[in-house]
Design a protein around this nucleic acid. Structure first.
Lengths: 340, 340
DNA sequence: CAAAAAAATGCAAACGTTTGCAACAATCGA
DNA sequence: TCGATTGTTGCAAACGTTTGCATTTTTTTG
């Protein structure tokens, strides 16, 4: 069963008594080859379970059919590992890429090489790059963009960006989340997250806007900057209550993980959710509804996001114009907030 | 900045006034080349930020430096997406592979092609395969093994396996988990999971053994077969309580996600955890301690697992003997079980 | 100082595809 | 029946590296 010297196109050709060009074309179902020969060659290939040497064809065609997906983590913490949302995006991208005949080369920003365009594209490891998350610094991404390599990033779409960004309507998300709390009667609403982070800052804007429109306290005392992990969120909430007491009655968290960390801190103090404090998250990870109380959140549609990202990347492969796109979000009402 | 016709080895050679062989060797720091020329060529390469064409070198060397990682999902449900544990393993593998100069090509068992060895290895897309999860059917994996391709699978190690399996000591895990519940005073302990699944059945064995040793009810009435998702676990617990009432006082769940689904079902009925029912999970996902009560569980060391899997794969690359290895687990006591 | 040994570099042949072009075979129209 | 047209296949040159071997340069040695 194991044939040590693997079969090549030339080998198959000799077996069939035709030239390599014929076999090559036949296997790609090229109509240049007579239908019968095509079919018989395909059958022969299957019989000997032949498989094309991808290294060779990539060299010849200068196309890899691989897309590098880079998890752009914030430097300090292993956000990737603790945040199911990003990994869900990876999973959905994989699905979508496969459907278009591409494969997914997984990387993260902790890799040795910093010049992504060079490392992935010039070296012909991949045809394009998808970066998940803008992190705090965008220098690496901008470098890729400048190199002209096909690129799509998941983040906060802005009009003036020099590269294609696909992302949720974070501003609206922050707005709707905040408004939902207001509707439920919250008067002092905490923003919990990292306003330095591109996406999060959009959510922050929406939060601010909702507060101002409703003429509710929007003092900066209410914005609590913290990393996007449940652990840090937990600690932040814990220490601020210790320091100032329970001076708020609502929390807009920038991610479900953050919300869940906050939730834990509150529940440990026997604070009633949602009556004493309402909490709303962002993402709608699978676990959100498992918690008690089930987490109200702003859902990001990762399936659609993956579809669009791949589409925009393919457009670049084909030298068509690609554009940033904003994806609709949706308020998912559960039990961690009061009904309006 | 964008040089449309990329620089090749030959180009660099011409620039430096040497031969391609010299440049090739110099860039690999081959001591055959005089140290000074080596350094000057490396500097030149960096200056023009040259990067080797990987397709070409792969073709020439017949080595890809890529490892295919296949998420072996159970057919029906998207376990990958909902289960953070598997994705954590992927993340850790990525880290570990990178450290050894390999890249990670991500796939899942839903891909079109079923002949993994052919698709990944013969086609020289990758040098080896790591399969995460044995699922219910092992035919695909066995086919890879038979092909002789370098292979490591994450699952339930068994002595008589024809391929290398790395996995936790599931039997011991199940045993310790059950014993912990017994120590806490539980008398009727439910096993919640899928005994058909390789790893889970090992855990089941441990569970049984602990019960029998302690001379506690181990009737099959107490084993509840369910898929490895929180949703199904939730439904199962819900419906069994509806049908039979609360006839148990402990649950050994085969994964944290399953445990969390059960937890939710119980809490919705205001059943006290851990006093009315104690619950213990398996995996120790990041979220386990966020829940209320924080989930007691059996921790699987994914970092170590990744390290060992990669090590065993590299051994196969070097034609050294590789072997299945069992990884120690650890009981993490939290709040969903009573102290002994 | 010449010959031998050692060190440094270059030549050229692979690796396995793809594809423009040439060549041959079959069909057609007049 | 013979050119012209169309349909089918083969030739051979890339694609950009790596590497055994030959060749040149430098160093050593008697």
């Amino acid at each position: 069963m194991v044939n040590d010297n693997k079969l090549t196109l030339a080998g198959l050709a000799k077996l069939a008594g035709v030239s390599t060009s014929t076999v090559s074309r036949a296997l790609k179902d090229n109509p240049l080859i007579k239908k019968e020969t095509r079919e018989s060659l395909q059958a022969l290939a299957k019989e000997h379970n032949f498989s094309l040497n991808r290294a060779a064809s990539r060299l010849r065609t200068q196309k890899t059919n691989v897309v590098a997906v880079i998890l752009n983590l914030t430097d300090d913490t292993d956000q990737s590992i603790s945040d199911p949302f990003l990994l869900k995006v990876v999973g959905d991208l994989n699905q979508e890429l496969n459907q278009h005949g591409y494969e997914l080369l997984l990387s993260n920003s902790h890799m040795a090489n910093d010049d992504w365009a060079n490392y992935f594209i010039s070296s012909s490891r991949a045809d394009g790059i998808i970066v998940i998350g803008q992190g705090k610094s965008t220098t690496q991404v901008e470098q890729v963009a400048k190199s002209g390599a096909p690129l799509v990033v998941w983040g906060a779409p802005t009009a003036q960006s020099s590269y294609v960004i696909v992302g949720s309507n974070n501003d609206l998300g922050g707005y709707l989340a905040t408004q939902h709390l207001i509707d439920g009667g919250c008067k002092r609403i905490l923003f919990l997250g990292d306003p330095e982070h591109a996406e999060m800052s959009e959510r922050y804007k929406g939060y601010k806007r909702a507060l101002i429109e409703a003429d509710i306290d929007s003092s900066t005392e209410l914005t609590l900057s913290c990393d996007i992990t449940s652990k840090v969120a937990y600690e932040k909430i814990d220490e601020i209550i210790l320091a100032k007491g329970l001076f708020f009655d609502g929390i807009v968290a920038t991610s479900d993980m953050v919300a869940l960390g906050a939730l834990k801190a509150l529940k440990e103090r026997y604070i009633n959710i949602p009556n004493d404090v309402s909490i709303i998250g962002f993402d709608d990870i699978a676990m959100a509804e498992l918690f008690h109380p089930a987490l109200t959140t702003i859902k990001q549609d990762t399936k659609l996001a993956a579809k669009i990202m791949v589409e925009q990347l393919l457009r670049q492969f084909n030298h068509q114009a690609a554009e940033s796109v904003v994806i609709d979000i949706e308020l998912i009402k559960r039990k961690s907030t009061r009904d309006s």
